[in-house]
Amino acid sequence: MSLVTGQIPLVPPRPADRPGERIKVAALGGGHGLSASLSALRRLTPDITAIVTVADDGGSSGRLRAEYDVLPPGDLRMALAALCDDSDWGRTWRDVMQHRFRGTGPVPSSLENHALGNLLIVTLWELLGNPVDGLKWAGALLGARGTVLPMSTTPLTIRGSVRDEVEGDGVSLRQVDGQANLAHASRFGSIQSVEIEPADAPACREALDAIELSDWVVLGPGSWYTSILPHVLLPELRRALESTTANRLLTMNLRTQTRETPGMSAADHLEVFRRYAPDLRIDAVLVDPSVVEDVEEFRAAAARLGATCFFDKVGAATGRAVHSPLRLANAYHDVFTSFCSRDTGSEEP
């Protein structure tokens, strides 16, 4: 129902295409980081394919994954919601997809903390028997400005090695299984390495095609070890990223000191990425100058990836460490335009 007129639209509205909108973009990541990039990119083009991590095992997604043996729907739901446009239809369905049930009755609710969008996606999967088809139907219902795909149709598990400090200035390494457990464990130690299981899981075929046919591939922002790196840990996906003729853009986070990356600088993030994907060339790195402590060190790390640095203020005006969709869209536009004009110069922070 339209929140303005109180009437139910017969079809979801489609934004009119404008000249220059037809650039094809594949955006990779998960969670709030991918939502940020999608919210920006949908302001630039309707040809977006979101390729989403499928290793979440916490909260509503983890419960549905365990109970129904399906892909975790949460990050896929967030990507769909981010692609809803700013019309009555889009805003209403975005809120519907993100709505979480909170029981208020005297009896504990089995729906407690489930997101309605997660239940809708799992319903479509059960009815259609195909995760890609289910996401297409969900996108059509929402009027999503783009396509959402899982990075693999096989549920993945993240395993990490966490370095803990012990008494006597010693250290110990312990193995942690599961994304939720790894995020919790990293509060008390630093992640040293990550891997996914099954290590040889097949990538989603449609995702591989989207990477091959895109003009730009955008990775990040997002949790470095659990949202960004899984895409290069999947062999088929990493090879597709290495071989595509698309330009590749890596978007940095607005904070370097997170639960997953304590003590790491912005340059350290790039070095970790290069360690897991040494043959993957990155064309551009977009970073807010506020997170770069040593500009020359950062430029050098980017150069080892083959990348040109673009410094731009992309954080929200509130000062919180969240991306502004409009600022990020403008920054993406500048990067895309720069490469189209063969001018790869960058602005100083």
Rank of each mutant, 00 (worst) to 15 (best):
Q192I: 04
A199T: 13
G178M: 08
R187Y: 00
T153R: 11
E165N: 04
A201H: 04
T154R: 14
T147P: 08
A183Q: 13
S193R: 10
V162R: 11
L173S: 03
R163V: 13
Q192V: 04
L149C: 06
V132W: 08
L173H: 05
S186R: 07
H184M: 08
L128N: 09
A199H: 11
G189I: 00
S172K: 11
A180S: 15
Q175R: 14
V148P: 00
E167C: 06
P198K: 03
V132D: 02
G160H: 08
L142S: 08
K136G: 00
G143S: 03
V166F: 06
G139T: 05
A138R: 10
G168I: 11
G129P: 10
V132P: 00
L156A: 14
P150Y: 10
T147W: 01
A144M: 00
R187N: 07
A140H: 12
A199R: 14
D169T: 14
N130K: 07
A140P: 01
G178D: 07
N181A: 15
T147C: 01
V166A: 11
M151S: 13
H184L: 12
L182V: 09
V166Y: 03
H184D: 07
P198Y: 08
L142A: 15
L156E: 05
G170V: 01
P155L: 10
V162Y: 01
L127P: 02
A140E: 15
T157Q: 03
S193I: 01
S172A: 14
E167H: 11
A180Q: 15
Q179A: 13
V176F: 11
A199P: 01
A185I: 11
A183F: 07
L173D: 02
R145W: 05
G160A: 05
I196C: 10
A183G: 12
S190T: 15
R159N: 13
A185S: 14
L135C: 00
I158P: 11
A144V: 04
G160R: 06
S161W: 09
E197Q: 12
D164L: 14
G189Y: 13
N181P: 03
D133M: 13
D169L: 14
A138P: 05
L142F: 02
G178Y: 12
P198C: 03
G143Q: 01
L135S: 00
S172C: 07
A183W: 07
G139A: 15
W125K: 04
E197V: 06
E197P: 02
N130M: 05
A180E: 14
G178E: 06
D200C: 01
T157N: 01
S152T: 02
S172V: 14
S152C: 07
P198D: 05
G143D: 00
G143I: 03
S152Y: 05
G168V: 10
R159D: 09
V162E: 06
A201Y: 01
V148Q: 03
L156Q: 05
I196N: 03
V176E: 06
N181Y: 04
Q179G: 07
G189R: 12
G134K: 03
R174N: 10
N181K: 14
T157A: 11
G160V: 05
D177P: 01
A185Q: 09
G189A: 05
A138I: 02
A185N: 12
L173K: 08
D133Q: 08
F188N: 12
A201T: 06
L142T: 04
V171S: 15
P131G: 12
V166L: 14
V194S: 09
